[in-house]
Design a protein around this nucleic acid. Structure first.
Length: 428
RNA sequence: GGAGAGGUGGCAGAGUGGUCGAAUGUACCUGACUCGAAAUCAGGCGUAGGUUCAAACCUACCGUGGGUUCGAAUCCCACCCUCUCCGCCA
């Protein structure tokens, strides 16, 4: 959510900035609504002040034992008008809030301008793609060849866009998550957190999934009146830990990591990545979140991105870092780096992590604050990123570490997590 | 699922219809005393919003949402959460 003051004071500037990310704000409508708000709010508060003053008089007169009926008459007709004004104001504020909740964040000044994915800027490229002396198969062929990756059975149990792993592949998947958690907790100073996978609407609103992206979420009915949402990322519970909190400034930065399943309905992406486990309704992810002092968020994003990159480096997977352009960035983000891992079968780099600085956008929705030097509450900044998406990391290993015989070499760093095992043997 | 108790400022804790945004304590800040500190004394100390150049003034907020009333922290209704006991249970 943007600062309402900013919209009041510099609507044109905001509109221009939002236009760079393809969002057109109806400035005229906003101005009209704002004017209406000002009029009605002033009127309402005048009436309230009047009522309070008269009520006070009644109290004092009664205390002295005086006759209050003349004063009562004075306030009699006030009620209707006040009630109308109050409900009018409430209605206007409701409309204003609806507008505010669907306006995306302003891009950071360092975010490259652009319209689409094609305008993203490569920041760095790390590692060299391996040269294969045999045709590289994709992860589906490798995994099914091992008889350890099974989409058919998953489809029978649940439907499309689910996967099922067995045996050593399932273990490798588990090993990856353990390895990532260990690196981030032991080397990068994150606190491991176990979180709920079902969250309430307030939490989804806090991080920006609601109200605009309900269609992307899975929900369950808790009871007649209440819904709970399956988390699309651990960002939601981790970031909402500080919702409605005022954290001590000396405790910043807060650094959290969690390994969770993530659930996404993938509405509107029916034709994309239908093969394999790139785009699933359910996948595991290790998520990094930092809650930081507003002056530190830029460097925190660099740090968190580097933390995520460390995993790819340790796994010896080639990747590149892309700075997303204004037009390709997510709703809540001011600046985003995507990490893209090399997938030889696609002959392309594919997203495996997305690291974003949300500045005060989520904090304002959440009322997540700290006490500044003057003791006044001020909004924190929030940062998060995948470190990494476990399923896609597994895909990258299957493709990059495959052998001509159908087996898969286990990256050295993971071998201790696999009981010392060095490869997954081909099926016989 | 059943029975009971409770949700008030950073914390503790009063307040059961009328200057209550809220006593008191504590924490914190400023000043005095002191060589300095502690103790003591005096003052200050919630959040959000509006009008405004500013000073100042006004409004809302006592778990949440409704209601009664000229007036609600206080009365009524619903819900949420916490605690205790019982039942069930990984």
């Amino acid at each position: 959510m943007l600062d309402i003051q900013l919209l009041r004071n510099d609507l044109d500037g905001v509109a221009k900035s939002l236009a760079s990310r393809g969002f057109i704000i109806d400035a005229a409508a906003f101005r009209a609504l704002e004017l209406e708000r000002k009029t009605v709010q002033t009127r309402t508060q005048e009436l309230q002040a009047k009522r309070n003053a008269i009520s006070k008089q009644i109290g004092q007169a009664k205390a002295k034992g005086e006759d209050v009926s003349p004063i009562m008459a004075e306030v009699a007709n006030l009620g209707e008008e006040l009630k109308a004004a109050e409900s009018g104001l409430e209605e206007i504020q409701g409309r204003m809030n609806e507008i505010l909740l669907i306006i995306p964040n302003l891009p950071h000044e360092t975010t490259p301008a652009g319209k689409s994915e094609a305008d993203n800027v490569e920041v760095r490229k790390v590692g060299t793609p391996r040269i294969f002396d045999f045709p590289a198969r994709d992860h589906v062929d490798v995994g099914e060849g091992l008889k350890q990756l099974d989409f058919g059975t998953a489809a029978k149990i649940s439907g499309a866009r689910f996967s099922l792993m067995r045996g050593q592949l399932a273990r490798l998947h588990r090993a990856l998550a353990q390895f990532m958690l260990d690196v981030h907790t032991q080397e990068h100073g994150y606190t491991e957190v176990y979180v709920p996978y079902l969250v309430n609407p307030d939490s989804m609103r806090g991080t920006g999934q609601l109200p605009k992206f309900e269609a992307d979420l899975f929900a369950v009915q808790k009871n007649e009146n209440e819904k709970l949402y399956l988390i699309p990322t651990a960002e939601v519970p981790l970031t909402n830990m500080v919702r409605d909190e005022i954290v001590a400034s000396e405790s910043l930065p807060l650094k959290f990591v969690a390994h969770t399943p993530c659930f996404r309905s993938e509405a509107g992406s029916y034709g994309r990545d239908t093969r394999g486990m790139i785009r699933q309704h359910q996948f595991d992810k290790v998520e990094l979140v930092q809650i930081v002092h507003p002056s530190k968020s830029c460097e925190a994003l660099e740090e968190l991105t580097a933390n995520a990159e460390t995993i790819l480096q340790k796994l010896e997977l080639p990747y590149r870092v892309m700075a997303l352009c204004t037009g390709d960035m997510g709703f809540s983000s001011a600046k985003t780096y995507d990490l893209e891992v090399w997938l030889p079968a696609q002959n392309a780099y594919r997203e495996i992590s997305s690291c974003s600085n949300f500045e005060a956008f989520q904090a304002r929705r959440m009322q997540a604050r700290y006490r500044n030097e003057k003791g006044k509450p001020e909004l924190v900044h929030t940062i998060n990123g995948s470190g990494l998406a476990v399923g896609r990391t597994l895909v990258a290993i299957l493709e990059n570490c495959q052998r001509a015989d159908g087996g898969v070499d286990i990256p050295a760093i993971l071998q201790p997590y696999m009981g010392g095992q060095k490869l997954i043997e081909p099926a016989h």
